[in-house]
């Protein structure tokens, strides 16, 4: 309803009419959402707009590899890649992820053909209960691609968004560093 503007800097903004804030007429409470996950298209019919990406992945699409720990951005268990960047799926609204490439743990390797980093986690015994592991691996992948693996301390700092209540940290750092030195070209 408003013409696209060329620059936010110079545009004049028309005043609001009256006291009541004008809610735009095209507001929605639920909507069909199209998500691209691990290269595949998924349609979620009339999804509530308050659904998080995490709940959508787990409850609607049954991609339960992504875990829910805190639901508040504090633990990293829900880490996925959106357009190649690691984010907390619990802090994202699903409706805002349309048109983006979402990668979850299910998308990086399969039994018999694991990702280098998955194999490194197994080789280094980088987990006990495994609850944090898919988030650690997704975060570790991004950490490697970002190039933050030059020392153990650097890995610790850049993996600090992923908590492990079992305390497998030492082995997680070792697995991430080993995978960083090998090929992660997958």
């Amino acid at each position: 309803m408003v013409a696209p503007e060329s620059s936010y800097g110079e545009e004049s903004v028309p005043p609001t009419s009256g006291a009541a804030p004008a809610v735009e007429p095209h507001t929605i409470r639920s909507v069909d959402v199209d998500l691209t996950i691990n290269g595949a298209q998924h349609r979620l019919a009339s999804l509530d707009v308050n659904a998080t990406l995490l709940d959508c992945l787990r409850d609607a699409l049954h991609l339960t590899g992504t875990k829910k720990g805190c639901g508040l951005g504090q633990c990293g268990a829900c880490t996925v890649l959106v357009d190649g960047r690691r984010v907390n799926a619990c802090l994202c609204l699903a409706v805002m992820q349309q048109g983006k490439q979402i990668t979850t743990i299910e998308g990086i390797g399969i039994e018999g053909d694991l990702h280098v980093l998955q194999s490194a986690f197994i080789r280094h015994d980088a987990f006990q209960c495994g609850y944090c592991t898919s988030g650690q691996i997704m975060s570790g992948l991004a950490c490697i691609h970002e190039g933050h693996t030059r020392s153990d301390d650097e890995v610790r700092e850049w993996m600090s968004g992923n908590l492990c209540r079992c305390g497998a940290y030492t082995n997680i750092v070792a697995a991430v560093r080993e995978a960083a030195q090998g090929s992660v070209a997958k």
Partner: peptide
């Protein structure tokens, strides 16, 4: 989360007019 309605304005003017706070 309490349900809400959602809009994605395409211009600063539209966003400002929403009166969001």
């Amino acid at each position: 989360m309490t349900p809400f309605t959602y809009a994605k304005p395409e211009s600063v003017a539209q966003a400002v007019r929403s009166g969001a706070g």
